[in-house]
Design a protein around this nucleic acid. Structure first.
Lengths: 352, 352
DNA sequence: CGCGACCAGTAAAAGGCTTTACCGCTTACA
DNA sequence: TGTAAGCGGTAAAGCCTTTTACTGGTCGCG
């Protein structure tokens, strides 16, 4: 790359405007020490020459890169997932608004082993990091527990360590879903799980869901809980397994919408009508949930907002305006057709 | 953020190793001028102190940021799209391997108006850019036609301007799909379109598809072509419209898989069997295509590889090892169940 | 009138690295 | 023996900003 036009530097501006180099800098940083007349003259020169300050040099002097990184898990289609997508959109929008650039990182094995997540800070590549989709298997997270490096866990947290996070109120979401099903009279319920051993929030959903059932003297036997790997295909297979073992189920709850959609497909294949034969409730409220037939009753997580919030908090941490961030954001049960509640006009949680 | 540990600089290493500052730098850049003994001593010191060079300072001295940006269109779920996801995965993997960082940018209106795409270069934030999903409406693209700024259009191109690109052989893909349907005996075919006015590659698919039909004296009337907005729901509605106007269609081709999947859903809703009543062919080969029932016959685009290639070429441009990059990558018809070819064991393009 | 405060602006150091010109010494060779 | 080349390393300039300490001048006030 040979730049065709010679780029101007702050020095050029200073010469052209007939002031010192530092004056230009002060003007650019809105320092009130410079008189209005001089300020205007400098600004005019900047405008005229189309000068753009070199961000690398600025960052070097500032000791801040004004860049944050988003760390994503290494999945087959990480970037192709609505879940991550929504969150990243929120992050990006907020970061841009606050003058930060967003860098993408993937938690490959090598990334972890070479401790690149630390290098990014030490090499001053980033001022902070956002961790999406990290789980208990990601040992490296613990390194951040005591560190001074700004970071926020996005829609996840740890019981074990004292970390920064922004997370949905998964427990309350599961509580709503369970109560809804119970109130509709369901007592034989299947649970399609996923990540119960690795992911704290998955665990929360399960615990909370089960607790509600217990309070109503409904038992959830181990065979009523099947792992659907958090994928659509997994949800489909889990449904088959559930129905083979328990032909009398009247409802199924899936820990995320993708699995719920898989379950729906399996029900169709088996000729079972939803919600008449079997009610179905999901979690997340991904766009496809509302397009499904029947439209899926599910718990809505504000993923976009979670991304925004996490980003905002991260930047507060970077600027030292906060030292610990732990926020739980509300979720909401969205009652649609797949649970059968709409036709029977049962009184339920208000729908937004 | 107050760094708890004092970070070492190249100066510290020089002192500790008893050499000059420049020697350390030369060692780090593998300059052969330094003797093996000195090199080892320096490396040992670097290792011992855990020194990490400041990337901002390096970039400033190099006049290169070692960072590229990926510019995405502003869609509702940009990041949540398999299409973009696959491409970005490819880009990211290759960039990382070549020592580049990947930055995310979204083509918001403001981004375009303030000409930030140019600022990114001038402020030395990035060394190059990759444009994904830009179309004829994105006027700004033309600015790059004559510029020296490294960039590559990913899976898109322009007939009007001389630009760098890496793009699938859409014409040949459509050619394969059309020939396949014709060979299977279909003569009344519906076409679900999208982006015909904005997107050159959409236009290519349409032109090529229609040309094949013409060669076989099959006409494609205007009412046989319906816009499905490139979305699943749009494909669903387009199918309804097609069948209402032409109840005698025996096959439908959709310009992308998402619309094909929507079409499939509509066929199910209408109680029409695919492929027995209506054959269906898509384009892209997104993961969901193979999971569908019946599995979708489609044209596979190597999206991941396209991302990799585009990234590779961009870096060649940055290093001045190339001045113009225009690559067309092959696509392949994947024959599955939705076209009915598999049962009849028709001779066709080999399947990978 | 003399002094401290204030004002607008500047010089210089700092930020951390790369790179080039140069240096003193040894070797090779005519 | 004189000289050119090679060797291993260093000093210093350069990359482009920010920021702090300082300066010279004006002003207000006791």
């Amino acid at each position: 790359m040979k730049p065709s036009v010679k780029r101007y530097t702050i020095k050029d501006i200073a010469e052209q405007a007939g002031v010192s180099l530092s004056t230009v800098s002060l003007v650019m940083n809105n320092n009130p020490r410079i008189s209005e007349a001089t300020r205007q003259r400098v600004l005019e020169t900047i405008e005229r020459l189309g000068y753009q300050p070199n961000r690398l040099a600025r960052s070097l002097a500032w000791r801040r890169s004004q860049t944050i990184a988003v760390l994503l898990p290494q999945l087959r289609h990480t970037f192709a997932d609505v879940y991550f997508g929504e969150i990243i959109s929120g992050i990006h929008d907020r970061a841009t608004k606050l003058g930060y650039k967003v860098m993408l990182e993937v938690a490959r094995a090598e990334f972890i082993e070479s401790r690149e997540y630390i290098q990014l800070y030490e090499q001053k590549v980033v001022d902070g990091m956002l961790f999406i989709g990290s789980n208990a298997r990601h040992e490296f997270i613990r390194e951040f527990a005591g560190s001074e490096y700004p970071f926020v866990l996005v829609n996840n947290y740890s019981r074990e360590f004292d970390l920064n996070y922004v997370v949905s109120n998964y427990r309350y979401g599961a509580w709503q879903a369970a109560n809804h099903l119970v109130r509709l009279g369901h007592r034989r319920i299947g649970f399609i799980a996923g990540g119960l051993n690795d992911i704290q929030t998955s665990r929360d959903i399960f615990d909370s869901f089960q607790q509600v059932l217990q309070e109503h003297n409904i038992t959830l036997e181990p065979s009523q809980v099947v792992d659907g790997w958090l994928t659509e295909e997994g949800g489909r297979q889990a449904t088959e397994q559930l129905l083979r073992a328990h032909g009398d189920l009247t409802a199924i709850f899936a820990l995320n919408d993708k699995m719920a959609l898989g379950a729906l497909r399996k029900l169709n294949e088996l000729g079972l009508r939803c919600p008449d034969d079997i009610a179905l409730v999901g979690f997340d409220d991904i766009p496809a949930a509302s397009f499904a037939t029947p439209a899926l009753t599910t718990v809505r997580q504000p993923l976009y907002d979670i991304g925004k919030l996490a980003c905002e908090h991260l930047i507060e941490l970077i600027h030292g305006r906060a030292s610990r961030v732990q926020e739980v954001v509300p979720v909401q049960l969205i009652v649609r057709e797949s649970c059968g509640a709409t036709k029977k006009s049962v009184v339920t949680t208000p729908v937004g």
